[in-house]
């Protein structure tokens, strides 16, 4: 990397690293150190091709996602499941989803915990779909898989969340914005998922 390249690389990292770290930490299930590690590796890869990259941010994000998914392939799933504590069974969704706001926050904590216990691929799909708000086709392109795979992984991940956090099944389905696409009977009952 020449001096100009190095300067633009430093500038990019200074400006965008916090936003990228957020995504990396989400992908790592809330583990800050794993997130930093993931981002650092992605940046090392990008630095090697810096002068050929037109859109550094998109490029680094793509590395983040793919790297995370391939890590999952290398490591296997069991390790992922041992990272976090089990969700607090004391939280009752009926009070948790109450209108006072405090309960909602507790429910989000339960959700955060459940998210950390998904596999890396499941989490990557949810982060892309619901945090980056990307359409299914873009998610498929980024992860290098088919749209059908994205769809089924999203469905299975949400189902898995309901198994990990049974409190979520008591959420009120009438507030759903797309009831016709997600019949409450299927979507809000705990779904059995084979390990």
């Amino acid at each position: 990397m020449d001096a100009t390249g190095q300067e633009s690389f430093l500038e990019f990292v200074t400006n965008r690293s916090t936003a990228l770290l957020r995504t990396a930490v989400l992908l790592s299930g809330g583990d800050r150190h794993a997130g930093e590690d993931l981002l650092q590796n992605a940046l090392i890869k990008a630095a090697g091709r810096w002068h050929r990259i037109d859109e550094p941010e998109a490029y680094v994000r793509q590395i983040l996602y793919r790297q995370q998914v391939s890590r999952w392939r290398l490591k296997g799933r069991r390790k992922e499941l041992t990272v976090a504590d089990p969700p607090d069974p004391g939280v009752d969704a009926r009070t948790a989803s109450g209108a006072d706001g405090t309960g909602a926050a507790e429910l989000r904590l339960v959700m955060r915990d459940a998210l950390s216990r998904l596999t890396a691929r499941q989490r990557a799909v949810l982060v892309l779909r619901y945090f980056e708000d990307l359409p299914e086709a873009d998610v498929a392109r980024l992860l290098g898989c088919s749209v059908g795979t994205v769809r089924s992984t999203t469905h299975r991940s949400l189902a898995r969340l309901r198994v990990l956090a049974p409190e979520l099944s008591l959420l009120d389905p009438s507030d759903d914005e797309k009831p016709e696409q997600q019949p409450p009977s299927r979507d809000f009952a705990p779904v059995e998922v084979r390990p």
Binding site: V13, S17, T23, G35, L168
Partner: peptide
């Protein structure tokens, strides 16, 4: 709120709670 909205809210909250990246990140890389 449904599960998808809760996932969204939870991810956003978690992202907002992530501290800024280390200042020496570029140097480390």
């Amino acid at each position: 709120m449904n599960v998808e909205e809760l996932v969204r809210a939870s991810l956003r909250e978690q992202a907002a709670g992530t501290a800024t990246a280390p200042a020496d990140l570029a140097g480390r890389v």
